[in-house]
Design a protein around this nucleic acid. Structure first.
Length: 574
RNA sequence: UGCCUCAUGGUGUAACGGUAGCACAGCAGUCUCUGGAACUGUUUGCCUAGGUUCAAAUCCUAGUGAGGCAACCA
C-alpha cells in the first residue's frame, strides 16, 4: 500500500477546503445525507490536464463521501459544440479511471428551462428586453457607476410572455430582443444588473436540432441543471466566484417554484464553491489557445503528444494513475498558482519506474566492432525486465561481434568524470560482457565512425571474472539483430515557463522548435512487435511508448514520454 | 477605477491561538551491472506595518502585491 495513504482522524487536519466544506455539511446532515457532484464540460474542445484536476475533484469528492458524480455536457451554446467533442470527453473521463453515475446533456433540460423562464416572467422576475446589444451595454453601466433600468423593465408580464413565445417560435432576428432576469441595476456585482438569461440564436443544435430559436445562458442554465440533477456540491473554478450570487438567485427561484429535488425528505439546494484552476509551466491551458494550435497546424491535432490534453498525454505515454497522482499532489486551494511541469514528469517517472519493462535501444547509433569476437558467433544473454518488479521476469537479448552503442557513450578525449567508453577504457556492456576500446576509425572529416576493441571472454553476463571494478555500464544492440525504429523525441512545447506572460508577444512565437525530433533508433528485436500503447523504459534513456496510431506490428513507432533523470548530462551540458 | 478573492522556501501545499512541516526542484553524499531507482544529509520561507493575546502564519485594522468580473461565451 502506498505510504501516502490518508488516515481519517475525524479532524479536518490535512484536508483541503472543499473536503472540509463537504465534510461539515455531511456531518450536519444536510442535503438529505447524500453527496452528489457533477463534472460539466462544454463539448467545444478536448479535455486537458486542467480538466483532469477538476475531474479528480468532482469525482474524487463524490468517492470520498460515498456519493455519486454525474457527467454532464454543458451544451447550451450550439455555435461551438459538437458530438465529436462529446465522444472525446467521455472517452477521456473513462480513461482517467472514473465512472459517472448519470450521463446527461444540459440540452435534455431545454424544455424545463424554458418553462422555468416563463414562470419567472409570470412571477415578475424576468422580462423581454428590446434594447440592442450596444444599448444594453450602455445601460448596464460600469463597475464604478450603477446601471440604468431598461425601458422595458416594467412592461406587463403578459407582454413579455407573448414576446418570449414569439422569440421561441423564431419570429425575431438574432439580437432583436432577449429575456432578462429582473434583479438589481444598481448592484456592485455586474452579474446582478438584470442579466440576460435567454438569447435568440437561429441556429440548429447538434442534438436538439432546429427545435429551438432561443437558448439559455450559462448563469441561468447551470444552477437549473444542478438543481434538477439533485447535485449537492457544485465545484468550479475561481472565475465563477462572482457568479455565485446569481447561481443562488436562480436556485431560490426554483425553490419558490417547488422544483428542487427532494431526497430523504429534504430539499436539495445545490451550492457552488470555487477553486483555483491549474496552471502548468511550459504549456498553455485554455481551450481557445489549444484550438488555435490545432487549427493553425502548429501541432498534429488535439491528441498531439506535445499537447497538455488528456488524449495528448495518453498518446505521449502518460498513465491514468500518474495523472491522478499528479492531481492529488498539486493540492486544492483558492490561490492562483503555477505548478511546475517537473512535478508531472516526476509522477510519470515514478509510476513507470515501477511498472515499465526495460529494453535496450540506441537512439544515436555508433558502430562497435569486437575484434576478438568470432564473426559468425552469436550469444543470447539474460536481461532483467524490471529490477523494481521481480515478477516481470527476464528475457534473452542477442549479442554478436558488431554492435550499436550510443554516440554519447563514447568520447575520444574524455574529461575526468566521464565513466563511459574511451580509448583504453573498459566498460560493461549491460548484461553481456566487459569491453575495452583499443582504437577508433574516423571518416575524412575526423569524425569517429567506428569504435574497435576487445572483450573479456571470461566476463559473460557482465560480471568481472576477478571482481575488478568497472565503473561504467552502457547499453548496446547487436547490429545483426537490430530493428530500426522510428522514435519521436518530444520535449516541452514552449521555450519559456509562461508563454502568456508577455502580452505583447503572440504565444505561438514562443513554441519550442525542438519540441519534436524524429530519429531512427536501433533496438533489440523484442521491441519491433510492441503493441500500440505499450510503454517501456529504454535503459539509461527514458520512457517510451508505442504510438497509438502510427505504430504497426513489426514496424513500431515510439514516442518519448520523458527522459530519465540525467545527472551527468545536466551537469555537463553548457 | 467599483466589487469579489487570494498571499507560507525556487514551485506547490500543510498548520485551524502553543516547536513552521511535507512533496517537487536544487545541492552534497552512500549504494549500484541503468550517471536511473533507492537511501542519507542539506540550502532556502510566514507580503509590510500596527493592534488583540502569556502566546499570532493563524484573530482584527490599514497598506502593498497578485488574480477574477465589466460576451446576448462557458
Amino acid at each position: 500500500m502506498s505510504d501516502n495513504e490518508r488516515i481519517e482522524t475525524g479532524s479536518d487536519t490535512g484536508r483541503h477546503f472543499l473536503k472540509q466544506w463537504i465534510a461539515s455539511e455531511v456531518e450536519a446532515g444536510l442535503s438529505g445525507g447524500e453527496v452528489v457532484t457533477r463534472f460539466p464540460p462544454e463539448p467545444n474542445g478536448w479535455l486537458h490536464i486542467g480538466h483532469a484536476k477538476a475531474i479528480c475533484i468532482d469525482f474524487g469528492m463524490a468517492q470520498e463521501f460515498n456519493g455519486t458524480c454525474n457527467l454532464r455536457m454543458d451544451d447550451t451554446n450550439p455555435s461551438k459544440e459538437s458530438e465529436d467533442y462529446v465522444e472525446a470527453i467521455k472517452r477521456d473521463v473513462h480513461w482517467l479511471g472514473f465512472e459517472w453515475n448519470r450521463f446527461i446533456y444540459a440540452s435534455d433540460f431545454f424544455q424545463t428551462m424554458y418553462d422555468i423562464a416563463e414562470g419567472l416572467i409570470r412571477s415578475g422576475h424576468a422580462y423581454v428586453c428590446e434594447l440592442s446589444q450596444e444599448e444594453w451595454r450602455e445601460y448596464r453601466g460600469v463597475p464604478t457607476r450603477p446601471g440604468t433600468p431598461s425601458p422595458f423593465r416594467d412592461r406587463p408580464a403578459d407582454d413579455s410572455l407573448t414576446l418570449f413565445r414569439r422569440m421561441r417560435d423564431g419570429e425575431f432576428a438574432e439580437g432583436a430582443c432577449c429575456l432578462r432576469a429582473k434583479i438589481d441595476m444598481a448592484s456592485p456585482n455586474i452579474h446582478f444588473r438584470d442579466p440576460v438569461i435567454y438569447r435568440i440564436m437561429r441556429m440548429s443544435h447538434y442534438r436538439a436540432g432546429d427545435k429551438w430559436n432561443v437558448y439559455p445562458m450559462y448563469d441561468f442554465a447551470h444552477p437549473i441543471e444542478d438543481a434538477l440533477e439533485g447535485v449537492t456540491h457544485s465545484m468550479c473554478t475561481l472565475e465563477f466566484e462572482v457568479h455565485r450570487p446569481l447561481y443562488d438567485w436562480v436556485v431560490d427561484r426554483m425553490d419558490e417554484m417547488n422544483l428542487l429535488v427532494v431526497r430523504n425528505g429534504a430539499k436539495v439546494r445545490p451550492q457552488q464553491r470555487e477553486f483555483a484552476r491549474l496552471n502548468l509551466t511550459y504549456t498553455v491551458m485554455s481551450k481557445r489557445r489549444l484550438l488555435q494550435l490545432v487549427e493553425d497546424g502548429l501541432v498534429s491535432g488535439w491528441d498531439d503528444p506535445r499537447m497538455p490534453t488528456i488524449a495528448g498525454l495518453r498518446r505521449r505515454g502518460y498513465t491514468p494513475e500518474s495523472i491522478r497522482e499528479f492531481c492529488d499532489r498539486i493540492g486544492v486551494s483558492k490561490f492562483e498558482s503555477e505548478t511546475e511541469l517537473e512535478l508531472l514528469e516526476y509522477c510519470i517517472r515514478d509510476d513507470l519506474n515501477r511498472r515499465a519493462q526495460r529494453r535496450l535501444a540506441v537512439l544515436d547509433p555508433l558502430k562497435v566492432v569486437i575484434e576478438n569476437y568470432p564473426e559468425d558467433k552469436e550469444e543470447w544473454f539474460e536481461a532483467i525486465n524490471n529490477p523494481e518488479d521481480p515478477i516481470a521476469g527476464s528475457r534473452q537479448v542477442p549479442f554478436s561481434r558488431e554492435l550499436w552503442i550510443e554516440r554519447d557513450d563514447f568520447m575520444e578525449d574524455p574529461p575526468k568524470k566521464f565513466f563511459r567508453l574511451a580509448p583504453g577504457r573498459e566498460v560493461r556492456l549491460r548484461y553481456a560482457c566487459l569491453f575495452t576500446c583499443t582504437s577508433v576509425v574516423k571518416d575524412e572529416n575526423g569524425k569517429v565512425i567506428e569504435v574497435r576493441g576487445t572483450y573479456d571472454p571470461l566476463s559473460g553476463g557482465g560480471n568481472a571474472p576477478d571482481g575488478r571494478k568497472v565503473r561504467g555500464t552502457i547499453h548496446w544492440v547487436s547490429a545483426r539483430h537490430a530493428q530500426p525504429l522510428e522514435v519521436r523525441l518530444y520535449d516541452r512545447l514552449f521555450t519559456v515557463a509562461d508563454p502568456m506572460a508577455d502580452e505583447s508577444r503572440d504565444f505561438t512565437t514562443l513554441l519550442n522548435p525542438d519540441s519534436m525530433q524524429v530519429v531512427t533508433a536501433q533496438a533489440e528485436p523484442a521491441l519491433a512487435t510492441a503493441a500500440p500503447g505499450d510503454g517501456f523504459q529504454f535503459e539509461r534513456l527514458g520512457y517510451f511508448c508505442a504510438d497509438l496510431y502510427d505504430s504497426k506490428h513489426g514496424a513500431a513507432v515510439f514516442n518519448r514520454t520523458t527522459t530519465l533523470k540525467d545527472s551527468w548530462g545536466k551537469a555537463n551540458r553548457p
